[in-house]
Computed example of a mutant assay.
Amino acid sequence: MKLNLPSLALCSLLLLWNAVDAFAQSNNTYSTKGWFGPPPPPFSPVVAPDRHITFRLKAPQASSVQLVFGEWDLRPQAMQRDTAGTWQLTIDPVAPGIYAYNFLVNGVQMPDMNNPETKSGTQLYASIVQVPGNRPRFDERQQVPHGILQTLHYQSTALQRLRGLRVYLPPGYFEQPARRYPVLYLRHGGGDDENSWTQPAGSADVILENLIASNKAVPMIIVMTNGLIDGTWAGGSSPEGVKALQQELLTDVIPLVEKTYHTLPGRDNRAIAGLSMGGGQSMLIGLRNLDRFAWIGEFSSGLLSDKDFKIDEAWPGIVNSSLNEKLHLLWIGCGTKDPRIPGHQDLVHALSQRGVRYEYVTVTGGHEWYVWRVELKGLLEKLFKTPVVYDQAVQLRDEQ
């Protein structure tokens, strides 16, 4: 078949013309008008200058909504519904701080879906609201030099699987490559994970950099590992679990950290501490490895508070006055309203009977993050400073 080139060209031109005409006749209603106005006011939570807090939830189908505010001594408070189906409650002024809260909607707990700041670990626990004061809080991010958070992954020899850890590097780390730093291995509690200490509820990185800026703490690296072996606090507290976590820390984590970062060598430059489940792990692992750690701390450990806990079974032949020559600091802390406080009192009494030097610290509160933030601040102020000034019984409080 013979192609007629002029006819082919004419057909192509007609097709192109029809396409252009089709675009010219499109009915485009898309508009960006109205995008660039001022942002709407916050919906929930709203912190007033006098530190009243207003909480709101849109739930037109709900028959009842309550606010559960705080972490300890929880008392649900009824919220009121308006004609549009929005529930609201304004609570009395609170002290400056970091607070957790949830809603109970028809008896079912849920976070505040209008608030992206949350407390999470093995599950999503609560929403978080921060209340400022007349001056910056010790656990509030301030206009100071900031550090860097990094994530590392490694193969756990003991658990035979890939695991993650978080590392906090202090301000100026990369600007001073010749400088080396001591390391705090900081452990979380049951139900949390390696990220929990650097979430708003923990704020370990924020607390440290504020202390460094005010010359109250030594610049240090903080390493936060996962203290769960099977997703439960019981697994992380069992003898088998602690043994596996000890092997993981000594065999995998410490070598990885010291290979990757500018660390100071030796036990004098390593500390281990933790809260609740992690507090028990820290004490057990630390005192069993005094060739690795010269600074040990625990906050609110349930394992050490148990009425059947036996020092000589946990640390055979270790806990006696000879510890005073090996440890720069043994820190023991608990909230005054925590049911673990009697066990802590028994523990420090037993240490005194054995001639062991320690720092016993209490904070007004229960088994909650407020207590642990205050405890951490006090511990950080003493770590890697020698000689350590001991106060064998002291109560700490939020400076606000």
Rank of each mutant, 00 (worst) to 15 (best):
M79C: 06
S127E: 06
G85L: 04
I229M: 07
H349W: 10
T90E: 07
D82P: 04
Q150T: 12
S7M: 15
L104E: 07
E298H: 05
A78Q: 09
Q77A: 14
K2C: 09
P219F: 12
L379E: 02
N134Y: 08
G317D: 06
S64Y: 00
Y261A: 09
S64N: 14
A350D: 13
A314N: 10
D306S: 13
P40Q: 11
Q160G: 10
A158N: 12
E240I: 08
A9V: 14
L67K: 02
D193N: 15
G70R: 02
P170I: 07
P200A: 11
L15Y: 15
T32K: 09
G302P: 07
Q353G: 10
Q246W: 04
W35F: 12
A48P: 01
M79W: 02
E240F: 11
R357D: 04
T364I: 09
L165Y: 09
T90I: 01
W372G: 00
T29P: 00
V218Y: 02
N195Q: 14
T122E: 08
Y358G: 00
E359H: 10
P39G: 07
Q400E: 07
A78N: 08
A100L: 06
S63A: 10
L249G: 03
R137S: 12
M283E: 12
I229Q: 04
Y370E: 07
R137P: 03
L8F: 11
V253R: 02
P6L: 08
N269C: 10
L211I: 10
F43A: 03
Q66S: 14
G302E: 01
A100D: 05
S12H: 08
V46R: 00
L383Y: 03
N115T: 06
L330H: 04
D92N: 11
A62I: 04
S12P: 04
P96G: 07
F299R: 00
W17D: 08
G355E: 06
I207Y: 05
G107Y: 06
D268Q: 12
V348Y: 01
G274S: 11
H367S: 00
D268G: 11
P49G: 01
L228H: 15
D192Q: 15
R51E: 02
A271F: 11
W233S: 15
I98M: 03
A271L: 10
P6G: 06
S237D: 14
R163F: 12
A273E: 11
V65K: 01
F36E: 08
R270A: 10
P170Q: 11
E368W: 02
W372R: 00
L14H: 05
P40E: 13
W197C: 03
Y358L: 01
L290C: 10
K259C: 13
T260P: 05
M277S: 07
Q176F: 13
P342M: 06
G280W: 12
E375M: 14
V348R: 05
K119F: 07
S282R: 05
S238C: 12
E313N: 13
L13F: 14
Q281K: 08
W17C: 13
Y358N: 02
P145E: 13
G227W: 00
Y261Q: 10
G37K: 06
K310C: 14
A62Q: 05
L162R: 13
P96I: 03
P38L: 09
L245A: 02
R397W: 04
D50N: 14
S305Q: 10
R267S: 15
G202A: 09
D338F: 02
W197S: 02
G191K: 08
Y168G: 02
